[in-house]
Amino acid sequence: YIGSKISLISKAEIRYEGILYTIDTENSTVALAKVRSFGTEDRPTDRPIPPRDEVFEYIIFRGSDIKDLTVCE
């Protein structure tokens, strides 16, 4: 799965898409590269977040912050 395009939804209901870079089982983290944030879209939340235009080089997510993770390709 390393190198695959991943769609990830955080506990804050924010969806991110990026390339799976590393999975650290010891620290329970997932790192994505070339990440875009799509905001909360239409998911119900107390704090709606708009999508962002910039592409983040890397984002490291803690396993406890991840609600859903899907391989896109």
Score class of each variant (00 low, 15 high):
Gly3Trp: 02
Gly3Cys: 04
Ser4Asp: 14
Lys5Tyr: 08
Lys5Gly: 10
Lys5Phe: 04
Lys5Met: 11
Ile6Gly: 05
Ile6Asn: 02
Ile6His: 06
Leu8Thr: 01
Leu8Glu: 12
Leu8Ile: 04
Leu8Asn: 05
Ile9Gly: 06
Ile9Tyr: 01
Ile9Pro: 00
Ser10Asp: 15
Ser10Ala: 02
Ser10Leu: 03
Lys11Val: 10
Lys11Asp: 11
Ala12Gln: 15
Ala12Trp: 11
Glu13Thr: 05
Glu13Pro: 02
Glu13Cys: 07
Glu13Gln: 14
Ile14Met: 06
Ile14Gly: 02
Arg15Phe: 01
Arg15Asn: 00
Tyr16Ser: 00
Tyr16Gly: 00
Tyr16Val: 03
Tyr16Pro: 01
Tyr16Trp: 07
Glu17Ser: 03
Glu17Leu: 03
Glu17Phe: 05
Gly18Lys: 04
Gly18Met: 02
Gly18Ile: 01
Gly18Cys: 04
Gly18Trp: 01
Ile19Asn: 09
Ile19Gly: 01
Tyr21Arg: 14
Tyr21Glu: 12
Tyr21Cys: 15
Tyr21Trp: 07
Tyr21Thr: 14
Tyr21Ser: 15
Tyr21Leu: 14
Thr22Cys: 05
Ile23Gln: 13
Ile23Ser: 07
Ile23Met: 12
Ile23Trp: 15
Thr25Phe: 08
Thr25Asn: 15
Thr25Leu: 07
Thr25Ile: 05
Glu26Met: 10
Glu26Phe: 05
Glu26Pro: 09
Glu26Tyr: 01
Glu26Val: 09
Asn27Asp: 00
Asn27His: 06
Asn27Pro: 06
Ser28Met: 03
Ser28Gln: 11
Ser28Pro: 05
Thr29Pro: 01
Thr29Ala: 07
Val30Trp: 15
Val30Asn: 04
Ala31Trp: 09
Ala31Pro: 01
Ala31Tyr: 12
Leu32Pro: 01
Leu32Val: 08
Leu32Gln: 00
Leu32Trp: 00
Ala33Phe: 06
Ala33Cys: 10
Ala33Thr: 14
Ala33Ile: 15
Lys34Asn: 14
Lys34Cys: 03
Val35Ile: 04
Arg36Tyr: 04
Arg36Phe: 08
Arg36Ser: 05
Arg36Val: 13
Ser37Gly: 03
Phe38Ser: 02
Phe38His: 04
Phe38Arg: 03
Gly39Cys: 01
Gly39Glu: 03
Gly39Tyr: 04
Thr40Cys: 02
Thr40Ser: 08
Glu41Gln: 10
Glu41Tyr: 06
Glu41Phe: 02
Asp42Trp: 05
Arg43Phe: 07
Arg43Asn: 11
Arg43Thr: 02
Pro44Leu: 10
Pro44Asp: 11
Pro44His: 02
Thr45Val: 13
Thr45Asp: 01
Asp46Val: 11
Asp46Thr: 11
Asp46Glu: 07
Asp46Arg: 09
Asp46Phe: 09
Asp46Ser: 08
Arg47Lys: 11
Arg47Ala: 12
Arg47Asp: 08
Arg47Ile: 09
Pro48Tyr: 15
Ile49Pro: 00
Pro50Glu: 15
Pro50Met: 09
Pro50Lys: 06
Pro51Gln: 09
Pro51Val: 09
Pro51Trp: 04
Pro51Gly: 12
Pro51Lys: 15
Arg52His: 08
Asp53Ile: 15
Asp53Leu: 07
Glu57Asn: 05
Glu57Pro: 10
Glu57Thr: 06
Tyr58Trp: 10
Tyr58Gly: 11
Tyr58Gln: 15
Tyr58Asp: 10
Ile59Pro: 00
Ile60Ser: 14
Ile60His: 13
Ile60Val: 13
Ile60Leu: 13
Phe61Arg: 00
Arg62Ala: 14
Arg62Gly: 08
Arg62Cys: 11
Gly63Leu: 12
Ser64Cys: 13
Ser64Val: 13
Asp65Arg: 03
Asp65Phe: 02
Asp65Lys: 00
Asp65Val: 05
Asp65Ile: 01
Ile66Asp: 12
Ile66Ala: 02
Ile66Leu: 06
Ile66Trp: 02
Lys67His: 00
Lys67Val: 06
Lys67Tyr: 02
Asp68Arg: 13
Asp68Tyr: 08
Leu69Gly: 03
Leu69Pro: 02
Thr70Met: 09
Thr70Ser: 09
Val71Asn: 07
Val71Met: 13
Val71Phe: 12
Val71Ser: 11
Val71Gly: 09
Val71Glu: 10
Glu73Lys: 04
Glu73Thr: 06
